[in-house]
Amino acid sequence: MDNEIVSSWHQGELAVQQRAGTDERMAEIGPKFIREFMPQQHRDFFQSLSMIFVGYTDHCSNAYASVLFGAPGFIQSPTETELVINTQSTIGDFIIEDLREGDHIGLVGIEFDTKRRNRINGVITDINQKNIKVKVLQSYGNCPKYIQPKEFAPNRSYSEFTTVSLDQLSQKYREIISSADTFFIASSFDDGQKFRNRGVDVSHRGGEVGFVSINAAGQLLVDDYVGNGFFNTLGNLLENPIASLLFCDWQTGHVLKIAVSSEILWHDEQQDSVVLAAGKVKRSLCFTPIKIEQFNNGLAYIQQF
């Protein structure tokens, strides 16, 4: 099998690409677009960030989405295949004991003012109470579509954490979701192979306020807008529907995290019991909440108006 060609995509991604009709284009684009190293501009980009969004799994294979903060430089790139992240500033839920060497991790960095966005899927090669060292397995940029521009100021109440957990959406949580123009989703898929295209992914979802709706059953509904055609997230969800959603209330500094079960709804498979989000799209995502947590004052930065 030494001459076996490994696809850039795992079986879930391939299945969704085939259903969406992008598989032939992705077979050509994947090897060119997805690198096993970071170009210098990506290294400079990550080192300039003051926050980075993280997807990971715990020892029970539950997916988590979180965000790490720091002054620019809290992320370092000693080589083109490594990132070292200082983890001492988090939203209070990032449990370092959940991670071990060899665990996969997904990272996405965004400059909300310039709409630049780059992603890393990697594996942890070293970890301690201060830093995580990540080896790059996949490195690629994303287009600026659907990123809502924002400017930030320090949150003076940051780190005064309090946590609230519920098993259903309260009116307050519904308002946070309904007024959101951005959220993040962590998903995972491990088929037991050690190829570079398996592991954990975290991705950004954005749109105009109201692009996430809530139906009568308390499910979150999101149209899947046209993107790069990779279907990293949908490919993972097809194989493993359990995911984690992260909503940041940039006005108050609070964070809402929701563990969910996911379903991909294609237009030819719509069910009468599910009301899709508005908009003529080929597919939508339906998220059924399992566990809801709010982290008060969990954001180091709040939106500056």
Results as ranks from 00 to 15, higher is better:
residue 77 S to T: 04
residue 79 T to R: 13
residue 79 T to L: 12
residue 79 T to C: 10
residue 81 T to P: 03
residue 81 T to D: 13
residue 82 E to C: 09
residue 83 L to W: 00
residue 86 N to R: 08
residue 89 S to N: 14
residue 89 S to E: 15
residue 90 T to Y: 04
residue 91 I to D: 15
residue 92 G to S: 04
residue 92 G to L: 02
residue 92 G to M: 08
residue 93 D to Y: 05
residue 93 D to Q: 14
residue 94 F to Y: 10
residue 96 I to T: 05
residue 96 I to M: 03
residue 97 E to S: 15
residue 98 D to A: 05
residue 98 D to E: 15
residue 100 R to V: 13
residue 104 H to A: 13
residue 107 L to I: 01
residue 108 V to W: 01
residue 108 V to I: 15
residue 109 G to P: 04
residue 110 I to K: 03
residue 115 K to W: 03
residue 116 R to Y: 04
residue 117 R to L: 07
residue 118 N to K: 09
residue 119 R to M: 02
residue 119 R to T: 02
residue 119 R to Y: 07
residue 120 I to Y: 00
residue 121 N to K: 05
residue 122 G to D: 08
residue 122 G to Q: 09
residue 123 V to D: 00
residue 123 V to K: 14
residue 124 I to E: 00
residue 125 T to M: 05
residue 126 D to S: 13
residue 126 D to W: 11
residue 126 D to V: 01
residue 126 D to K: 15
residue 126 D to H: 14
residue 127 I to A: 10
residue 127 I to L: 14
residue 129 Q to A: 05
residue 129 Q to V: 10
residue 129 Q to C: 07
residue 130 K to P: 01
residue 131 N to Y: 03
residue 132 I to W: 00
residue 132 I to C: 00
residue 133 K to N: 02
residue 134 V to F: 07
residue 135 K to A: 04
residue 135 K to C: 05
residue 135 K to R: 12
residue 137 L to C: 08
residue 138 Q to V: 04
residue 140 Y to M: 02
residue 140 Y to H: 12
residue 140 Y to N: 02
residue 144 P to W: 07
residue 145 K to F: 12
residue 145 K to P: 06
residue 145 K to W: 10
residue 146 Y to H: 07
residue 149 P to I: 10
residue 150 K to V: 04
residue 150 K to G: 06
residue 151 E to V: 10
residue 151 E to C: 14
residue 153 A to R: 02
residue 154 P to I: 10
residue 155 N to R: 09
residue 158 Y to N: 11
residue 159 S to M: 03
residue 159 S to K: 03
residue 159 S to G: 02
residue 160 E to Q: 15
residue 161 F to D: 09
residue 162 T to L: 09
residue 162 T to Y: 11
residue 164 V to P: 01
